[in-house]
Computed example of a mutant assay.
Amino acid sequence: MDDSTQDGVTLYGPASWEGPVHRYGPVARVAVLSDIHANIPAFEAVLAEPDVATADLVVLLGDLTWGPQPQETYERILALGERALCVRGNADRYAAEIGTAERVAGTPRQSWIAAQHSPEAIGFLTRVPFAVVVEIDGLGPVHFCHGSPRSDHELVTPGTPSERFTSLSAALDTRVLVTGHTHLQFDRVVAGLRSVNPGSVGLPYHSAEPGTAYWALLGPDVQLRTTHYDVSDAVARARLAADPDAERYVDTLMNPPVPEKIVAQAESLIFVE
């Protein structure tokens, strides 16, 4: 990993094997799904949406397999074939590092999650790039990354001040930045750029009913979308999988934090693994 620091914080940017950001398109429609967190019922429900099924590309915005059904999530991503473009989340980095013995697991759940991946799945995670750029009709080139353009664990929220946004986006050559990580859905203009987060498919922070998955459709504009799924199935699968953190995961599904609280907390922390 080519890491640097920001105010004493380690930044986790592109890996050492990565060259310039890969660019794709032009295309008409892109479905953006972020923070799946191995919630298979939510993932499958969103993939079944007609606008996702017919999109030219499906950008998966990181934190793919860190949850109760990681191997199954990996297999469904593979089934999307060349339509799927993945970017690396901080949780994907953790899983890959633990799975390759580059990092020692710090909790029983970290060990458990890494062990649920096949060697092929771990290998896949080690190859996921930090960011991609896609030329989209009506929007032009769009930069996709998990946290921010400078680190996979920097938090970008609807409350991020223009000064910090200007700093984190300084290297961009696009007018639209799409990020995940905060599990919050939003679309705003800040510091002269458009900042979009599709929200989380598998573990969203929101004030709607449990069993709501969040995503976005890009082209020719930005459409923020939701999909309802069987949350009781997700709860049952988490418990059946013997996820060591199943009850906390279930509590977040059934009693998600409200966005206002998350924004305040995120802006006080800025970087969160």
Rank of each mutant, 00 (worst) to 15 (best):
L11C: 15
Y12A: 11
G13V: 13
W17A: 14
G19S: 13
R23Y: 05
R23G: 08
G25Q: 04
G25S: 07
P26T: 03
P26F: 13
V27M: 05
A28P: 00
V30D: 02
V30H: 02
V32D: 03
S34H: 14
S34T: 15
D35K: 09
I36Y: 09
N39F: 00
I40T: 03
A42L: 09
A42S: 10
E44G: 03
E44C: 12
E44Q: 14
A45K: 03
A48R: 09
E49W: 00
E49Y: 00
A53N: 02
A53I: 03
A53V: 02
A53E: 07
T54E: 15
T54Y: 03
A55D: 05
L57G: 01
V58H: 00
V59L: 11
V59G: 07
L60F: 11
G62V: 04
D63W: 07
T65Q: 07
W66A: 15
G67M: 10
P68S: 08
P68D: 06
Q71N: 11
E72A: 15
T73F: 01
Y74N: 03
Y74C: 06
R76G: 12
R76M: 14
A79F: 03
G81H: 05
G81V: 08
G81D: 05
R83A: 12
C86V: 01
R88N: 02
R88Q: 13
G89P: 09
D92Q: 08
D92W: 14
Y94A: 15
Y94K: 14
A95G: 12
A96Q: 05
E97A: 15
E97W: 14
A101C: 12
A101R: 15
R103T: 07
R103V: 06
V104D: 06
V104K: 08
A105F: 05
G106E: 11
G106S: 11
P108W: 00
P108M: 09
R109H: 09
Q110D: 14
S111Y: 09
W112R: 11
W112M: 12
W112P: 10
A115N: 09
Q116D: 00
H117N: 13
E120T: 08
A121M: 01
A121E: 01
I122Q: 05
I122N: 04
G123N: 07
L125M: 08
L125S: 05
L125P: 02
L125V: 00
L125H: 04
R127F: 00
V128N: 02
P129F: 04
F130Y: 13
F130L: 09
V132P: 00
V133H: 01
V134H: 06
E135C: 04
G138N: 07
G138E: 05
G140D: 03
P141F: 03
P141Y: 02
P141C: 10
V142I: 06
V142D: 02
F144G: 11
C145R: 01
